[in-house]
Computed example of a mutant assay.
Amino acid sequence: MSKPMPAESRPALHELFATHRQTFINAAARILGCRSHAEDVVHDAYLKLNGSVLTPGIQSQSGYLMRVVRNLAIDLYRRQALEKRYAGSEEEGMYIPTPSASPEAEHEDRQTLEAISSALQSLPERTRYAFEMYRLHGCTQKEIAEELGVSPTLVNFMVRDALVHCRKTLKSLDGNRG
């Protein structure tokens, strides 16, 4: 296995990150909601790509770099959300009211969430990303279009397609229950 090349021998990668650093930070900050974490993500992306043995045609691939930054930001966001969900003291847990829903209703709710999650996972990555950023994170379609390098109209179609797909999934789930 060959060693990663130092930054001096990868001037194109170094120059690309230096030139587009603010763009990458802004994209990561939109996902994370924190500029400090976004800067960490961009730094991690640089280290990851600089340490990679294979970085194909990086001179013309700022889109590839944006995808790496975005994916790392999404991973961090999900990890933080998961940690936040399970963090808390024992005292806090003592004051949580018991659910009033019946076990059957809870089971149906869980099935619905699993079906929607599965439906979203079956979508193309770009479509799923556009839908999640629009519906869950409140980004505008124009912002998403700029980030993905596509037209706002295409983002509109991707969000609509994802929504239609989720509705079909729910309809078939309701049909199976009834």
Rank of each mutant, 00 (worst) to 15 (best):
Ser117His: 13
Asp161Gln: 12
Glu39Asp: 04
Leu148Ser: 05
Val69Thr: 03
Arg21Gly: 02
Arg79Pro: 00
His165Cys: 07
Leu170Glu: 05
Asn50Thr: 03
Ile58Arg: 05
Thr140Val: 08
His137Thr: 04
Ser9Phe: 10
Asp161Arg: 15
His37Met: 06
Ser9His: 12
Ile144Cys: 08
Gln22Thr: 13
Leu148Gly: 06
Ala73Tyr: 03
Ala27Ile: 09
Lys48His: 11
Glu147Ala: 15
Glu106Tyr: 07
Glu114Ser: 12
Gly33Met: 05
Glu125Asn: 04
Val68Thr: 15
Ala101Leu: 15
Gly175Thr: 09
Phe17Leu: 07
Leu113Lys: 11
His137Asn: 10
Ser9Met: 14
Leu49Ser: 04
Ser172Trp: 03
Arg128Ser: 08
Gly93His: 05
Leu113Val: 10
Glu106Val: 15
Asp75Thr: 11
Asp174Gly: 14
Leu72Phe: 08
Val159Cys: 12
Leu16Lys: 10
Val164Gly: 00
Thr153Glu: 11
Gln22Cys: 00
Lys84Gly: 09
Ala12Gly: 06
Arg85Gly: 04
Ala18His: 08
Glu91Pro: 00
Gln59Thr: 12
Tyr95Phe: 15
Leu65Met: 15
Leu173Gln: 10
Arg160Gly: 03
Thr140Leu: 08
Ala162Phe: 08
Arg10His: 06
Thr140Ile: 07
Leu32Val: 01
Ile74Cys: 02
Pro103Met: 07
Val155Asp: 04
His137Cys: 07
Gly57Pro: 00
Gly88Ala: 05
Arg85His: 11
Met66Gln: 11
Ser60Pro: 00
Gln141Trp: 03
Glu143Val: 07
Thr98Tyr: 13
Leu72Pro: 02
Thr140Glu: 11
Gln61Glu: 13
Leu163Trp: 09
Ala105Leu: 12
Leu170Thr: 02
Gly93Val: 01
Asp109Lys: 10
Glu125Met: 02
Ser118Val: 00
Leu32Asn: 01
Asn176Met: 11
Leu13Ala: 08
Tyr134His: 13
Asn50Tyr: 01
Met66Ile: 02
Gly51Glu: 02
Gly138Met: 06
Glu143His: 10
Glu90Phe: 08
Glu147Leu: 15
Phe24Ala: 01
Pro124Phe: 05
Tyr86Gln: 07
Lys171Glu: 15
Glu92Asp: 12
Pro6Val: 11
Thr127Ser: 10
Val42Gln: 03
Thr127His: 08
Arg160Phe: 11
Leu136Arg: 13
Tyr64Gln: 04
Pro99Val: 14
Gly138Tyr: 05
Thr98Met: 15
Thr153Trp: 07
Ile96Asp: 05
Leu65Trp: 02
Leu173Met: 13
Ile96Ala: 10
Ala28Tyr: 01
Glu106Gly: 13
Gly63Cys: 00
Glu108Phe: 08
Arg21Ala: 06
Met5Ser: 11
Ile58Cys: 05
